[in-house]
Amino acid sequence: MYPSSCTDEQWALLEPLLPARGNTGGKGGRGEKHPRRLLLDAIFYLVRGGIAWRALPREFPSPTTVYDIFCRWTKADVWQRITDVLRHRIRVGAGRNPTPTAAIIDSQSVRGADTVPTRSRGWDNGKKVGGRKRHIATDTLGLLLAVVVTAASTQDRDGAQPLLAAVRAKFSTITLTWADAGHSGRLVRWARQVLNLTVAIVKRCDPGFVVLPRRWVAEHTFAWISKHRRCVRDYETRPEHHEAMVYIATIMTMSRRLARSTNR
């Protein structure tokens, strides 16, 4: 129906990765009323267009239904699992090992709307941004490995600790991580001593615009994410919901990429 809607090729990739349907365990309860493809299209439409839940067009199920499905799948880590599978397939298709051995981390502050509560927002004095900060880890192809959302006032090195812990728990194969100078100091020592992970700092040397080795990969990923208007500004009352929006934006990008390769 819309440019953000799943193509047949995308749906063939994503349908098997969705959780089991409700009312399949013989425990009673109603079955699912709406087609899953329509529900997923509604979520994709919202993430791509940046609209409010209540502004969903009438062609989709009610905003309350779509939001409830979004929350249910977010709580069940569905978006993370789909991201992992799609990343695996892209890496294999590119001739890489399925699991990465190196990562790039970076952070980005985004303005928070009035729906973001005071307890989970802050002020990034360096970027002059009030809202939240998302910390991401990618592989060397720019494919998302993990994301952690904190208040914008959180220092990069502090926000990177739970991020690196999540990366280490998920990928035992990763031994090297590149980061910018904002992650230097105690984070490097902590990662080496606690996670047995090397954090290499890529420093800026020349003035003006310079493409920095490795660091540009994470910037490229931020550009992919920011094409989805719901991720340009933070509207979520809960940080984990903004993390889900980042994963969904990544899923939309990767599934389109895989669908194009399937057509070729």
Score class of each variant (00 low, 15 high):
L18G: 06
I51K: 03
L195I: 03
I105S: 05
L258T: 11
A166K: 05
E219I: 06
R111S: 13
V167E: 08
A191H: 00
P98K: 02
K227S: 00
R256E: 09
Y247W: 13
C205N: 07
R192H: 12
R229P: 02
R134W: 03
G26Q: 03
L13A: 10
I43L: 00
L197G: 06
M245G: 08
P61W: 02
L17I: 09
A165F: 03
M1W: 07
E219R: 00
G185N: 02
S120D: 11
D124E: 01
A52C: 02
P207G: 07
I51D: 14
L56M: 15
A165H: 07
R230K: 11
L56I: 15
H183R: 03
I104V: 15
S255L: 09
E15A: 15
I251Y: 01
W178R: 01
V149S: 06
D139F: 00
S184L: 05
R72V: 07
Q155L: 09
V199R: 01
V167I: 12
T198Y: 05
G28V: 02
P162F: 13
A165T: 09
F209Y: 09
P239E: 11
F209Q: 10
V116Q: 00
A223E: 08
R36N: 15
G142K: 00
P98V: 01
R260F: 10
H228C: 03
L17A: 11
Q155W: 04
S109Y: 01
L164S: 06
K33L: 15
I174M: 08
H242D: 06
R186C: 10
L163N: 03
R204Q: 13
E240A: 03
K127W: 05
R119A: 15
D206Q: 07
T65S: 14
W190C: 06
A160C: 12
A179Q: 03
L164Q: 07
D84T: 13
H88P: 04
A102M: 08
I136V: 15
V210C: 06
R134S: 09
R30I: 10
W216Y: 07
V217K: 00
I104R: 00
Q155C: 01
